[in-house]
């Protein structure tokens, strides 16, 4: 959920100016915001499944250290979505295990 009104920061002035595709679903996003923020805004909390026990993972540290939030972004696995900025037209996939390399890349 996006925070439209805020008592300290004031009202949101940015507008969604990008579309990213997440597992085939198109969601609105703001150029330059972290991919993870756009996903949370769209209510998506599960970003990947672990290699060993297929357990769900999402955002944990939000500073690019813990690597829990990695996804397949434009065909490349293990992209840290908390520090990777959104670009219009990005194709994002929930990463299962180590993910797979897109041939199109």
């Amino acid at each position: 959920m996006r925070i439209v009104h805020h008592p300290i920061l004031g009202d949101e002035t940015r507008v969604c100016n990008a579309i990213i595709t997440v597992d085939g679903r198109q969601i609105p996003a703001i150029e330059g915001e972290p991919i993870a923020a756009a996903l949370l805004a769209a209510g998506i909390k599960k970003f990947r499944e672990t290699p060993k026990h297929n357990k769900p993972r999402g955002i944990f540290c939000a500073i690019g250290r813990c690597t829990d939030c990695v996804m397949i972004v434009d065909g490349i696995p293990n992209v840290r979505t908390c520090i990777t900025p959104v670009r219009d037209g990005m194709i994002i996939k929930t990463q299962k295990g180590l993910g797979e390399w897109s041939e199109a890349r």
């Binding site: 944990f60 540290c61 250290r65 813990c66 690597t67 990695v70 293990n78």
Partner: peptide
């Protein structure tokens, strides 16, 4: 030994 190299 994983992706985050023990930082967590």
């Amino acid at each position: 030994m994983g992706l985050c190299q023990g930082r967590t």
